[in-house]
Design a protein around this nucleic acid. Structure first.
Lengths: 238, 238
DNA sequence: GAGTGGTCTAGACCACTCA
DNA sequence: GAGTGGTCTAGACCACTCT
């Protein structure tokens, strides 16, 4: 950690989370923060932009930076987040069952678009998420093995993202996500405790690395009563 | 339009949309853009940050700014978007039926949190969205009448957002949104063509103005087969 | 009018990629 | 090593809010 604006951002997040300022209060002005942190105003502004993007403050011209209530819908899951991050945050009584880890049948052309090279193979990992003893989420992940050469049950048991980012040093750049409601497949009925629910919520994502290469395709199939998506959106300035 | 970086952003969006560069190609370097647009590099960087946030480019250190495929899931609906914006974009054969416009019963305390002042009243607008002749979405909106004193059937028939932003000059700051799946209410069954679907997808949002005041609460209730949410997420830099 | 955030500049140095 | 984006600075002027 040597980036000043990130240090300042993290420091301010800590202070906000410790309720140093209450909701509706104004942060010290940018000039004041600049002298407090012994830096330039532009650097402070970068830190404040991060706070704003992440829903901690709303900047109001002529007034200041106001602390806003980030938890109106109890927790924010904006952006890219994995099941284990989520489970940890919610302190769910949860368990992951690794159902299968295999290379995709080379005759199966459905995941061709994941390959950067014709010789690449595609991992297919199916995991079942159990919450409070009920099997409610089926995660089907597909990875290009060029980026993920080794994939063990142990890695899949934990957070694959953790492994990718901390062990392999790959950095996630961006993701495109789609949420729709569908009829359960035979596989859903077999692997999940659907209990008469006639729909599943399907989240499909494509995850790209820092260098804009497509890295992963995921299908996360949820029993509808165990699905919840929370989003924080900021209107693009005009 | 006098903000340089916004002009440059809009100009670059236009160029990207006209396929001046194809996917995977690099934009001219920041220094080159700076001399092309006769401005400083920081101003170019602001324009590029906007492109990046909106999913047009991925910046790669040491290489350049790469054009990415913004339309993998056909269209991005990140952020705050209204039904009429969406319908226009998709060219849906759609119709809006204004079912009711009324002040909320003062004895109904459920929307108390919308009021900034005890004397404020709360508008309640119910609209039904018909697509291809089927009633598939029920939008229930609640507004504080301090910001929206007048609400006619004509306004509700079009885009309320349009009216708010262009006629009243209010600016939306941010929104918090929740998506869950629920059982249909009697009202859903009465007003929508549910056709045996046993679930509805409910999107609840709280919309805040530029000055961080809570302005609107919305419940948008969708028949599950007519629901789709698309999101573009960027990993927060670390 | 004093103080706030918003925009813009010109320059510096660093970290990274690629030939 | 040349060229790219990433960070940081110090200063200027503008637009806005509040009293």
């Amino acid at each position: 950690m040597q980036k000043k604006y990130l240090n300042i951002y993290n420091d301010l997040v800590k202070k906000i989370q410790s309720n140093l300022w209450s909701i509706g209060e104004l942060l010290p002005s940018e000039n004041e923060l600049a002298s407090q942190y012994e830096t330039s105003r532009e650097t402070i502004r970068k830190a404040l932009d991060l706070l704003s993007q992440n829903g901690y403050i709303q900047k109001i011209q002529g007034k200041g930076s106001m602390i806003i209530d980030r938890n109106k819908f109890s927790f924010p899951v904006s952006g890219i987040e994995s099941f284990t991050e989520l489970a940890g945050k919610l302190e769910l009584n949860s368990r992951t069952i690794v159902h299968s880890i295999k290379y995709l049948d080379p005759n199966n052309k459905s995941m061709e678009f994941l390959k950067t090279d014709p010789h690449d193979r595609v991992w297919n990992v199916n995991r079942i998420r159990e919450i409070d003893g009920e099997k409610v989420i089926l995660d089907k992940d597909y990875f290009n093995d060029q980026y993920l050469p080794l994939l063990t049950e142990e890695i899949c048991q934990g957070s694959i993202y953790n492994y990718i980012e901390n062990e392999l040093g790959l950095v996630i750049g961006f993701a495109q996500k789609e949420i729709v409601v569908e009829n359960p497949t035979d596989e859903d009925r077999e692997l999940l405790d659907l209990e008469g629910f006639s729909n599943v919520v399907v989240i499909r994502s494509q995850v790209y690395l820092d260098d804009a290469n497509l890295f992963q395709f995921t299908e996360s199939r949820h029993r509808p009563d165990k699905f919840r998506f929370v989003d924080f959106a900021r209107r693009v300035k005009n």
